[in-house]
Amino acid sequence: MSRQVTITIDGQQVTAAEGDKLLWVALDHGIYIPHLCGIREKEHPDASCRLCFVEVEGLPNPVTSCTLPVKEGMVVRTRSERVDRLVRTAFELLLSNHRLSCAKCGKNGRCELQKIAQERGLKLKLTRMRSLLVEKPVDDSPEKFYYDPNRCVLCGRCVWADREKAKIGAIGFVRRGMDRRVAAFWEQPLADSPCIECLACVEACPVGALVAKEMKE
């Protein structure tokens, strides 16, 4: 049993188990912090989406809340000029490589990107950035879902679900840098992979990359 500590988030006092990651503590208390890659059960967070920045009193720079263990007396602000700037840039960067046609997306209305935009007053279109999107074919081979890599934000939640929930190992991250993507072996269609279509990955996907087919028109 870990010790209970009291911390302050945006002026609100909350209690939590010492060492729990701030992101989940905040969310559990109804305080929203943008996030895509966070997985509560994962001991060592990926910290790859770079959206969950907060200011912590005593720390010189904004930090990612998914990696921050809470300590007694910690004083946190989820918004500041610096935090907002980083979140905005990270968000716009993700959009710059994302197919931006929400109306045609199977996750329209249930998409985490839309939620972040709404919560933080950000636009769902490119204003500053150049579009980096190079259209890749949609994998329509599975019976129950489809995979649109053009909407993938590389959060890794599907890969985690495939490994830890479904225990399959059909998909993983392949290639590097801008070419990094979620794919099956040899980048073959998912229907030719060991995938059993349990839909664990579809459930995990926060955006319109993995979408169950009945949701489609």
């Binding site: 399959i168 190992g169 993983g172 991250f173 392949v174 290639r175 072996f185 040899w186 980048e187 060991p194």
Partner: peptide, 22 residues
Amino acid sequence: AMEQIASSLKIPEVDVYSVATF
């Protein structure tokens, strides 16, 4: 070769591909 390595090491094929393409 990658398929054979994966099955011998008892790891998903995509994990070998992931390293080979990185």
